[in-house]
């Protein structure tokens, strides 16, 4: 759950220390993937209804499931805050929801464990629907009430997009591990 510590810096040789520092960008990969998917959501497609899946949320959920140590709630908070800024929502709506979603995923992981792809999909769906249901009240709390009926478009689209996102995250994780055999990723 929590990334294991690196070997004591003072005991490393100079080459080892340099290698360790150069390898540490991998800690930011889950966050960067999520931000990339957020940017992808901003594609200027001529969609009349919000059918664009909530890729940012899906990425946060997928990483919280695959690598809980690299997607702790505070990283999810940062990704959510960026989503708020980019979408023009009141700052704090997605930030709070992403952080809560990441910690819920972490708790569920500890309680019920992992039982294969379909089970994970179901768990992610429940969390995702919970987040979408909470979006309306939080927007109202921030003083901008919105109708939630159009979210009925986004929920199934996000549901369908889950396997793609989780597969992308898994592929990235495989590449990461393969690129640095000694890398301790938590």
């Amino acid at each position: 759950m929590i990334a294991s510590p690196p070997p004591p810096a003072l005991l490393m040789t100079k080459a080892e220390r340099r290698r360790w520092l150069l390898a540490s960008w991998r800690y930011a990969v889950p966050a960067m993937t999520s931000i990339f998917l957020l940017m992808l959501m901003l594609a200027p497609l001529p969609l009349v209804v919000p059918v664009m899946p909530h890729l940012g949320l899906l990425a946060v959920l997928a990483w919280a499931m695959l690598q809980p140590g690299l997607m702790p709630p505070w990283v999810a908070f940062g990704v959510g805050a960026l989503a708020d800024l980019l979408f023009g929502q009141p700052l704090g709506v997605n930030a709070t929801l992403f952080a809560v979603a990441a910690s819920v995923m972490r708790l569920l992981d500890r309680r019920v464990g992992r039982h294969g792809h379909s089970f994970d999909w179901a768990v992610a769906t429940v969390v995702m629907l919970g987040v979408m249901a909470c979006t309306g009240p939080l927007m109202a709390l921030a003083g901008r009430p919105v109708p939630m009926a159009p979210m009925l478009w986004q929920a199934p689209a996000s549901l369908m997009a889950w396997p793609l996102v989780v597969r992308l995250a898994a592929a990235i994780q495989r590449r990461l591990v393969a690129s640095m055999p000694g890398w301790r990723h938590g």
Binding site: P73, W74, P90, L91, G92, A95, A99, L141, A142
Partner: peptide, 28 residues
């Protein structure tokens, strides 16, 4: 503790946005 603090901060930001919608304008 950090998780709890982060969520509390999010809710505080929401209330701040309710009181003054222009708060995040410059960061945005």
């Amino acid at each position: 503790v950090i998780s709890g603090a982060v969520m509390a901060a999010g809710l505080l930001l929401l209330l701040l946005a309710r009181v003054n919608p222009e708060t995040a304008s410059s960061i945005r």
